[in-house]
Simulated assay, not measured.
Amino acid sequence: MSFVSITTWRLVGETETLEHVKDLMVRKYFPGLLALGAEHSMLVDTDLDRFAIVTVYPSREARDQTFARISALRSEGAEEFGAELMEAYAGDMLASSGS
Score class of each variant (00 low, 15 high):
G98K: 15
S41V: 10
I6W: 01
A52S: 14
R60G: 08
P58Q: 11
G37N: 06
A90F: 06
V4K: 10
M93Y: 05
M93F: 03
R50C: 09
G82P: 05
A83Q: 08
I53T: 06
E14R: 12
V54M: 12
D23F: 00
A95R: 05
L94C: 01
A52K: 02
L33F: 14
M1W: 00
I70P: 02
S75Y: 09
P58E: 11
I53Q: 03
G98M: 14
E76H: 14
E79Q: 13
G13S: 13
S71H: 12
G91L: 02
G77W: 05
T55W: 07
A52N: 01
T7V: 12
M1H: 07
A88M: 11
L94F: 13
I70F: 11
V21T: 01
H40W: 14
T55K: 12
D23Y: 02
V56R: 15
M86T: 11
D92L: 09
A88L: 12
A78V: 06
S41M: 09
A90T: 07
T7M: 09
M42L: 15
G37W: 08
T17S: 14
G98F: 15
K22P: 00
R10E: 13
Y29E: 03
E16K: 14
S59L: 06
R10W: 00
E87I: 07
F51Y: 07
D92M: 07
W9I: 01
E39A: 08
S97G: 12
M42S: 12
G82T: 09
F67S: 13
A83S: 13
E19Q: 10
L18W: 00
A38T: 08
Q65G: 05
G32A: 15
E80S: 11
Y57L: 04
E16H: 11
E84G: 08
A38N: 06
V4H: 04
L33M: 13
L48T: 13
L24F: 02
E87K: 13
F51L: 02
E14C: 03
A52W: 02
E61A: 14
R69C: 02
R63F: 15
V4E: 09
A72Q: 15
R74D: 12
F67G: 02
R63H: 15
L11W: 04
S97V: 15
S59Q: 04
M1G: 11
S75N: 14
A88S: 11
A72Y: 07
A90P: 00
T17Y: 07
A68I: 05
E76C: 10
F81Y: 15
H20P: 03
A95N: 03
T55P: 09
A38L: 08
E39V: 08
Y57N: 08
A72F: 08
A95G: 05
L24V: 00
E76L: 14
A78Q: 14
L33R: 04
E79H: 11
R63I: 01
R27Y: 05
P31G: 07
W9F: 05
A95V: 12
T8R: 14
D45V: 06
V21N: 01
E16G: 02
Y57C: 04
S2F: 09
E87V: 10
E16P: 00
I53L: 10
G82S: 06
L33I: 06
I70A: 14
F51I: 01
Q65D: 07
E87W: 07
I53R: 00
